[in-house]
Amino acid sequence: MRRSPAGFRPVVVAAAAAGLAGCDGPLSTLDPAGPAAATIAGLWWAMMSGGIVLLTIVMALLAWAFLRPGAGRTTSPRVWLAGGGLVLPAVVLTPLLLAGLWAGERLLARPGVPGIVRVDVTARQWQWDFVYPDATPAVSTNVLHIPVGRPVDVHVTSADVIHSFWVPRLAGKIDAIPGHVTVVRLAADRPGVFHGVCAEFCGTAHAHMGFTVEAHAADAYEDRLRRLGRNTR
């Protein structure tokens, strides 16, 4: 039996470990802690499944061509072109498109939902300032406090350049644009500390422009905002 070249196995293991390392950790989109992030993770898994189906079919056809040379010769090139180039992608991509549209509709920050909490965010080089209009004049810097189980509409803007607000375990990202307010709805379904980053290159300290989101139970949240308010005054 032929042996693999020396060092082949460690290289494969190292490459797989490096790739899989991104599936866990404080910034993992595959470890959602809220409904919006769960919708995005679900779409990712659907796309992953579609990609596996396509790859499997293409690899099976490739193996067939290698193992049975000339076996597909009886089928006309037109069928191969139309089948492989149009029908196959259409059959896989159409459900993925519909899933993407469905997920996109679910993620929209529609008004009129009961219990919405509002937070105003201003991004600036290199920090995040959070204002809680429902508990004026509470403010915090680089730590966002939210209640568990309630939708939080984060109104984002920027004081200088374009940044992007992203808490991967709670929601998708949204650009922070000077002179413009964008809104992203996030929610946490459990108490805890979640990490956020600036997801749009914004200058030399971009990589250090992180923040945390602390999700509190209802009572603890109210208490936290009261203390923030006292500190602000």
Binding site: L101, G104, E105, L108, A109, R110, P111, V183
Partner: peptide, 10 residues
């Protein structure tokens, strides 16, 4: 095809 069905603005 998505024009009649999807949300336009919030």
């Amino acid at each position: 095809l998505a024009i009649p069905a999807t949300t336009l603005c919030i």
